Computed example of a mutant assay.
Amino acid sequence: MKNAPGATTLGLGLAALWPEKALLVECDPEGGDLAARFGHHPQPGLTGLAAVARAEGARVDLGDHVQRLGVGASVVLAPPGDAAAAAVQTLAYAGTEVLRRAAENDAVIVDVGRLVRGGPGLRLAAVADHVVVVAGAQLSDALQVQARLRWLRPELSGRLWLVRSGDDGYDAAELGRVLGVPVLGEMPTGRLVAGVLTGRLQVPNWRRLKLARAMRDMALTLVTAQPASMLPPVPAAEQLVPVEVRS
């Protein structure tokens, strides 16, 4: 979503804390940051995966394009700049079957960045079992999500979730109720864990801290959640109103 606060951090955290084997595919057309943050070269990575997927289709082995980061996550790294957008575009139209096949054995987490109508990220999200939207809890953030849900929901075949980011604004239950989206969890402010997952800090016990525990709980929920086909119809969302602030 617009200015999604911490989406890449969450994706990397889920990959590192997933209870079983998992990997992250960095598919944000405006991304390509993880290689630099963790001191890796972006190859092998997304560019090579996209090129081979276009040439060979679903026969590609996703594992050939993975690197292991210091936080314990396996990642398909994107290149910086326009090369990331080009690789994401190619993968969205030629590589979705590669991701599907890989997900039959291991969890595949795809960071698509901001979801845009008609964009490659939406095409990737459309085939996912779960789609997690990260949003701030201020009225402006919630309105941005609400406006996009009208066209996002019909595009998805999987289950839609909301993650509340930050400490102010609507609480998680209220935000989920007015948007009509189940809340997967909350990302409280956690400078140490965020520093670890952006490559700026090394904290030996970071997995025990509050933000990491919240991410682990989200991963467990996704592992055990029912598929979208078994869920009741989504209730209509309510009209958002400003949060009253009293001194």
Rank of each mutant, 00 (worst) to 15 (best):
A85D: 13
G169D: 07
V181E: 01
G45P: 02
D28V: 10
T47E: 15
P42S: 02
V132R: 02
P29L: 09
G169A: 05
D129A: 10
A102H: 05
N3G: 14
V132I: 08
R101C: 00
E104Q: 12
W161Q: 06
L162H: 05
G95A: 08
L149M: 11
T221V: 05
T47K: 04
G31R: 10
L23Y: 10
L222D: 05
L124I: 09
T47Y: 09
R216E: 15
E174A: 14
A103W: 09
L10R: 02
L156V: 06
G199D: 10
L175C: 02
L34Y: 06
G180Q: 01
A58V: 10
R123V: 11
T221D: 07
S140K: 04
V133R: 00
P188T: 04
L23F: 14
V116S: 03
N105K: 10
P120K: 05
P232S: 07
G180I: 02
V223N: 04
V132K: 02
G39E: 09
V234F: 00
A50V: 02
V76N: 15
L240W: 11
D111L: 03
P154I: 09
V75L: 14
L10W: 05
A85L: 08
R68Y: 10
R101V: 14
E174G: 08
T9R: 03
H65L: 10
A50G: 13
A214H: 00
G113A: 07
V183L: 02
V75A: 15
